[in-house]
Write a protein that binds this DNA or RNA. Structure first.
Length: 218
DNA sequence: ATCCCGAGGG
DNA sequence: CCCTCTGGAT
């Protein structure tokens, strides 16, 4: 099976069975999504969602967060990974939003990555989810699942994976494909023991087919 | 012990 | 290109 065919089957399957895929992060406006995605680095969405409602209530606007004390923000996010760094990043991010962007979340990746705590992955999530742009954010799930399926080939880092995925996926599917890969990775194609016996797309999964050929599965 | 929607600094 | 940050779930 060629890679182009894998992509075609991948899109065909999820467009049919999971057309409504979207982020599981809780947010009610662009600012809240930006904060949530910054917090989500190396942390489960579930844990982020357990802390953000209280955080958003305490700091509802970029101005409120910019004027906050870092140690106070830390207390709200202490149960999330890297709370020290993230508290610092959140206050710095809000300060830059307030001073340079009129308290509004910028809509370009090149501007977003200037914000403290915002790297390429976070910026891609924001422009994709908020501004509906065809950007592919490559996180741990996307990187792993795309490699297993054979949608990426020998990608050694997220940037290489992103280039390959964007190249093969039609623009109108990129934002959804991002969430398809994430959700599949979170619930089926998990890191440690992928649930291949529950997986609906083994017929075009490169890893599954390779393992089956070796007699390792089923 | 490993993983979770990574980013920044050296 | 490393390294560090660093809590909770499995």
């Amino acid at each position: 099976m060629t890679r182009k065919e894998r992509f075609a089957q991948f899109i065909q399957h999820f467009a049919t069975h999971q057309p409504e895929a979207e982020t599981e992060l809780y947010y009610e406006n662009p600012f809240q999504l930006l904060v949530a995605v910054i917090l989500s680095a190396q942390c489960t969405d579930k844990r982020v969602n357990a802390t953000t409602p209280v955080l958003f209530k305490a700091f509802p606007t970029p101005q409120a967060l910019a004027n906050a004390d870092v140690t106070e923000v830390f207390e709200y996010i202490r149960s999330i990974s890297y709370p020290n760094n993230k508290a610092k990043h959140l206050v710095g991010m809000a300060t830059l939003l307030l001073n340079e962007y009129n308290s509004e979340v910028p809509n370009k990746v090149e501007d977003l990555v200037k914000l403290p705590g915002v790297g390429r992955k976070t910026a891609n999530v924001v422009v994709s989810v908020i501004f509906d742009k065809p950007a592919m954010a490559v996180d741990t799930h996307v990187f792993r699942v795309a490699a297993r399926l054979g949608l990426t080939v020998r990608a050694q880092n997220p940037n290489q994976a992103e280039k390959q995925l964007v190249k093969f996926i039609p623009e109108q599917y990129i934002a959804r494909a991002h969430h398809w890969l994430i959700l599949h990775g979170r619930y089926v194609c998990v890191a440690r023991n992928p649930k291949c016996n529950e997986c609906a797309i083994t017929s075009f999964c490169k890893m599954y087919q390779a393992n089956a050929k070796k007699g390792l599965l089923i």
